[in-house]
Design a protein around this nucleic acid. Structure first.
Lengths: 140, 140
DNA sequence: TTCGGCTGTAACTATACTGAGTACACTTGA
DNA sequence: TCAAGTGTACTCAGTATAGTTACAGCCGAA
């Protein structure tokens, strides 16, 4: 599965919440900054909420951070918006078990794929949303 | 964009060619091991050929390795079957330039995304197709 | 207690990509 | 010459995504 733009939108949302602390920002306001539909924002906000990164309450404008941005890594965000069982690499499904290669290729590739995915995730885990937010602020 | 199963099929194909050296293996034979349509194989074989990893000739059965498997990394294979400009991470397209966050978020995220992708690619570059082929053989 | 504003979610649409499959022209070697 | 195989264009079904409409439910201020 691709890494959808939900990921970048989620990072955008968290940055906005962070830099607007104290203000009540609605999904509509966020949507205008991201330039999309408020429902898209609410959907992603829902994922972030389920993952325990933000807190929202129905009927009340303004999401708040559930913990400081410094304690939220890009990997947390990535996992929050990425469908649970979605693997980054996809494998062809039913290789021929009658063939020595077909029978064993999956297991071999699985090791390589897992290693590569781990490397990517480790990199994401090394960056906090606070760094991102500060970086954005420093460019403004 | 997702990492399509073309990648795993391509690795499968190279392993088969390697372990069948000397024999003429047709796209139909490969297809039966991968368990798909011969055209799918020919398509991927075409990409591997364009990338200079294998050599084929129209009308003649049997692809051959253009260079030893030990000199072909998983990253080479990955790049061969991955559409050129396809980025792993996708970014939401037109954030609002009137917003300080919207104006700068892309540049900030781009750095993070690039780093993560580099980490993944470095991991893929560290594994050669020879290792994969040997690993498959050792399981047989 | 009413009411406007907002969230949460379901449902639908348009779009895009993928793997699979058909068809066929072209190449090659026996 | 001709059977076998490759290369490629075209089509199709399945699936994921972003965008959008619609609406029920919650909340707080007047």
């Amino acid at each position: 599965m691709a890494i959808s733009s939900r990921f970048s939108v989620a990072a955008h949302i968290l940055t906005l919440i962070h830099q607007s602390e104290g203000t009540r920002i609605t999904s509509e306001y966020i949507a205008s900054s991201v330039n999309t539909n408020p429902v898209v924002i609410r959907r992603i906000l829902g994922m972030l909420s389920k993952a325990g990164l933000v807190r929202t309450s129905a009927g009340v404008a303004g999401a708040t951070l559930a913990r400081p941005l410094g304690e939220i890594t890009m990997l947390d965000v990535y996992r929050a918006v990425q469908p649970e069982q979605e693997e980054l690499f996809s494998m062809h499904e039913h290789p021929n078990p009658a063939c020595p290669v077909g029978r064993n290729i999956q297991a071999s590739l699985d090791g390589v794929f897992t290693g590569a995915q781990r490397a990517l995730e480790a990199e994401l885990a090394s960056v906090t949303m606070e760094q991102v937010s500060l970086d954005v602020a420093s460019r403004a």
